[in-house]
C-alpha cells in the first residue's frame, strides 16, 4: 500500500431507496470521493454473499450494501 492508496469501493444499492438517495446526492451536488461505484439492484435481498466475495477477489477494497 503506497501513500496514494485509492481504495475501490463497490456499492450495491437498492433501487427503491439507496439508489434514489445516491441520485439525490447528485441533485444536491453533494461531493464524495469518486472511488465509490454504485451497482443498482432491485432490492438488497438480491445481493448474494457470493458477489461480495467475488468483488474482494477481483480487487475491491470495500463493499457497501445499502438499502
Amino acid at each position: 500500500m503506497n501513500e496514494t492508496f485509492e481504495p475501490q469501493i463497490v456499492a450495491y444499492c437498492c433501487n427503491y431507496c439507496a439508489y434514489a438517495a445516491a441520485d439525490l446526492a447528485g441533485s444536491m451536488r453533494l461531493s464524495y470521493p469518486s472511488n465509490v461505484k454504485v451497482i443498482q439492484v432491485p432490492c438488497t435481498g438480491r445481493v448474494d454473499i457470493l458477489y461480495l466475495l467475488r468483488a474482494i477477489e477481483d480487487g475491491a477494497d470495500g463493499i457497501y450494501v445499502a438499502g
Binding site: 454473499i49 457470493l50 466475495l53 474482494i56 477477489e57
Partner: peptide
Amino acid sequence: VQVLSSILKI
C-alpha cells in the same frame, strides 16, 4: 461451494 471457493482463494 461457490462461497467457500471464493473464501479460500481470498
